[in-house]
Amino acid sequence: MPDPGSYILLGAVLFAIGMVGFLARRNLIVMFLSTEIMFQGVVLNVVAFSRLHGRLTGDAYGLFLLVIAAVEAGLALGLVVLLYRRKHTLDAESWSAMSG
């Protein structure tokens, strides 16, 4: 098993890529997919940390992260569907009317 440093680096890269997607893309669904990539980075990181310390706490955290991801996906998709019904587009920028 490669040592945790590699996993932490990999997690950081995945997190950064996901963040790029969330900030730069305008399609609501792709934005949410990007947040899920960030989750992947985090899951890898917590498991790696947990291996670093020789414990399984990180695995449990990973499972809770999965729960959070499922919750997020459910609510996010509900919102996306609602927003799509209103404006017939998935463009996040079409909802910028309220931004100052």
Partner: peptide
């Protein structure tokens, strides 16, 4: 929506 990114440069800068 899909063919034009929103401030890609800034986003990449912040993330990395």
């Amino acid at each position: 929506t899909d063919t034009r990114a929103r401030e890609p440069l800034m986003a990449i800068l912040v993330s990395f």
